[in-house]
Design a protein around this nucleic acid. Structure first.
Lengths: 188, 188
DNA sequence: GACCATTCTTGATCCATATCAAGTGCTTCC
DNA sequence: GGAAGCACTTGATATGGATCAAGAATGGTC
């Protein structure tokens, strides 16, 4: 559980007494490659921190899938949209590799928000980060060509290419697998 | 200032004592049509609630402007991205009509977050709303054609067509003014 | 109220990327 | 280990919307 404390304390400090209250709310969950962490149509029960593995966030429409992002490292995972609203979600989250996630139930998190101001601040700060990340991504979608988006991914997250299928990366970059394949042949 | 209290209390309740501390932090600012509320490259000093008027949020790239959204009614305004990070911003916010905004300085808001838990909760809740709105918009961009995006705007925010130029709406809907004009002629 | 600057319209053309279609591996799993 | 099923590649073709171009309408300004 040290992972959870370190992750939270990148944003706010917790006293040992506070941590004693926070810690028992987090439990570890395991997903085999291909398993779904969250499914569209269901209410997301938990918010996760990734201990290990890679997951993809996507939604389905007209028989194809649109990938919106990946979770790995020590970042967040789960369908945050449904988790926040506690309404049936529109997204799927699937383990791309065997994964270990540490999650907290929605009701437990609300209780921590009530009892520990630092936790509510943490909730606010990770949302700020999320909002800023989305803004950056939106600008990139609007101003970069398919090739530039690919080059930028190459420059910033080359490890992703090893971790997930080209099909999913293509979708994340908003292009078809064919276009992505041709770019790979042409660029570099 | 009643507007501010009502707006905040759509999310959290404040005691009169708390409100007495919150109220003096908000000041009214006026912008004539065409004025910029925020400019790219500068750090956004304030977070605003719209009392009156319409503003557009956009960014410039390669000589054209990309409109990301509009503020009006009693919603938020300003470059939230720069406001949150307190780093030079990438967006412009311009008054599309004469506007009255009620704003709070960044330092004042942080102080309120420290002193009044309900205010920090408010900060968290409006970010949740923002994140969910962006998710919906992202899904729409990915799944709807230009015509469907136009129809959806017609159905959901017909008043916008009266308030802002077609050029800006076209940009908001991710199409050129020419395409937008043709859609208007064709649809309906 | 005439002038200049935008915005909006309409038409012709172009292009980046999607779609369709085969063919070639890799996995994985009975 | 053979078959089925995907993931990837490569080529041919199609297309939604962009771009270019030129008027018409609108609106702000002196």
């Amino acid at each position: 559980m040290d992972l959870v404390r370190r992750t939270i304390e990148r944003y706010v400090k917790l006293t040992d007494a506070e941590w004693a209250e926070v810690a028992p709310c987090w439990k570890e969950y395991h997903f085999a490659k291909g398993d779904h962490v969250s499914e569209a149509g269901r209410i997301e029960k938990r918010f996760y921190i990734v201990r290990d593995g890679v997951q993809r966030l996507y939604f389905a429409h007209d028989g194809n899938e649109h990938c919106l992002g990946f979770a790995y490292g020590h970042s967040w995972s789960g369908d945050y949209d449904s988790f926040l609203s506690q309404r049936p979600g529109r997204f799927h989250v699937q383990a791309v590799t065997d994964s270990a996630l540490v999650g907290i139930e929605h009701a437990d998190l609300l209780r921590l928000y009530d009892r520990i101001p630092a936790m509510e601040r943490w909730g606010r700060l990770i949302l700020e980060e999320l909002v800023q990340g989305r803004a950056t991504r939106e600008i990139e979608q609007l101003t970069l060509s398919a090739e530039e988006r690919y080059r930028r991914l190459l420059a910033r997250s080359p490890h992703l290419l090893q971790l997930v299928s080209q099909k999913d990366i293509a979708s994340y970059l908003r292009m078809t697998p064919e276009t992505f394949s041709r770019l790979r042949a042409r660029v570099l």
